[in-house]
Each structure stands twice: as structure tokens, then as C-alpha cells.
Design a protein around this nucleic acid. Structure first.
Lengths: 127, 127
DNA sequence: TATTATATGAGAATTATTGTCAAGTTTTCC
DNA sequence: GGAAAACTTGACAATAATTCTCATATAATA
């Protein structure tokens, strides 16, 4: 993987945005500083960065994928009401990998956990 | 929700196929007995059955959604090699909901866990 | 610097899924 | 049992997210 201005810009945009943005969102931000960036390039870079482990892709939310610059093991919570995505520390399921490997014999390379529900702000409003 | 022949047929196809099929797969099966079923009808029924809780939609795998007639709480493992999807009992992460609710204060309505790795057959071959 | 490998922009192409609408089924209830 | 209301269907157009293509540009290598 060679150096590229666009790829650095993708990484920087991800780091600067605490939210877990979609490709579309990153594209909008990047377009402001360089109006000629191509959506294809953005997707290419997101895929390369994901494959090389420098960022994480979050699937299973709505239609489009979200991306996360935090590559430490952690999970995600999406609020049904405000649609915000929150990080959840991995220790809520301490032995999940060990237990599953013991029970099944499978080799686990990665796992993702996604919670759906109401965040603290929305649970007050939505009872 | 009224009775409908097609919807029953979707449910039956899901029950008879131990795998966790995609809409496309279900469509192929259904087309064999009734060549006039419409893909739109199939998607409509899959959505209604999912919303009413009679089946489960599995997101976060490849491009397309998979569907599961097993609505008991359980997780999924997808083998990177053979792409088969296996059920994982929910007790591998016994207190995950309680722990997460306590730690965050959020209200958790549902959660999904997806493991990626190698199943027993493939781990021998792929070392 | 010349050569090779990699990255880019533009836009077409693909894939999964949803929307539209007129016609067909089910349910309701008199 | 039959008319009216509510729901479902098939056909196919439309959409949305993502990937592909390809000629050009940029970076790494020697």
C-alpha cells in the first residue's frame, strides 16, 4: 500500500469525527476541502484500510456500512430513536470467545456485537 | 395480517431449510413449486414476518440479508472458508445484556452477535 | 531518471431491496 | 351469501449502496 493523500484524508476524517460515519458522511466532509474526491476512491480506501486492520467496518446497521477508527475490541449500541451509535466496552461479555471456542471447537477470528435499544436521552422521552 | 398462501410458503421454506437462506435462495426454492411468485412479494413477506417476530433477519453477513426461522435467542457463526452459518447458543455470553444495561443505563431491546472464523471441517484444511 | 506499481476521478454497471399500481384474495358484517 | 373494506399479489420500474472500468496521475524502486 503506497502513501496517498486521499487515504490519509479518510483516516483523518474518521479520527476527527467521534460519530461512526457512513461513507456518504465522510464523502461530504472530504468534499468540502477537496471538491474533486471521488466516491469510488473513498470506498476503495475504506476497504483497504479495513482489510489492513487500520479501521473497522460496522455492518448490520440500517442500509449502509459505518466506519470506526477505534480498532480496540469493543461493541456497538445503536439507539432506535436517535440512531446514534455508542461504543460499548468488550468486557460486558468477558469470556464470549473462549466459551464459544470450547463449546464448538471452531476457530474464532473476530466477532461483532450490536445492541439495539434506547439510549439515556431517548429512554426518558420514549418511556 | 391476513392469511396468504405465499406467506405460509415462505415460512415453510424457511423451516425446511436448515441453512439460513437469503431472499434469493428462498425465491429459487419457491419458484420451483410456483413459478409466478414475485420477488417483491417475497421481500414484503420476509419484512412482515420479521416485524411480527415470527422469523429473524440476520444482517452483517456479506451483501445480502439471511433469514432464520429459529426465533429463540441465539447467535451466529459464519465460516470464512465455506461460508456456512452455524447457530451458537446464547449462553456463551450469559450476562451480556444485564452487564451492558448496568454499565450504560441504556435500555436494550435486542442484540446480535456474529462470529467469523473457521468451522471444524475447514480448520483442518486451512490449518 | 526510467520503469514499474499503485492510486485516482469520472461515470457506467451491478446488486439488493423497495415502491407503484392495477388486479386478485381474504375478511367483515349485514 | 354477497357487497364492501382491507389486505395481498405480480410485474416491473425505481432507488441506494457499492463496485467496476479505464485512461490518467502519482508514488516507489532501481
Amino acid at each position: 500500500m503506497n502513501y496517498s493523500k486521499q487515504r490519509e484524508s479518510v483516516l483523518q476524517t474518521l479520527r476527527e469525527n467521534v460519530v461512526h460515519p457512513t461513507a456518504e458522511y465522510i464523502y461530504d466532509i472530504m468534499s468540502k476541502s477537496d471538491s474533486s474526491v471521488s466516491l469510488a476512491t473513498l470506498y476503495r480506501n475504506l476497504n483497504q484500510l479495513t482489510e489492513s486492520g487500520r479501521i473497522k467496518k460496522i455492518d448490520g446497521l440500517e442500509n449502509s456500512a459505518h466506519y470506526d477508527h477505534n480498532t480496540d475490541e469493543h461493541y456497538h449500541f445503536i439507539c432506535k430513536e436517535c440512531k446514534k451509535i455508542f461504543d460499548i466496552p468488550a468486557d460486558v461479555a468477558a469470556d464470549i470467545v473462549k466459551n464459544t471456542e470450547e463449546k464448538t471447537g471452531f476457530v474464532i477470528q473476530s466477532h461483532d456485537v450490536i445492541f439495539h435499544g434506547l439510549c439515556n436521552d431517548c429512554k426518558k422521552i420514549c418511556k
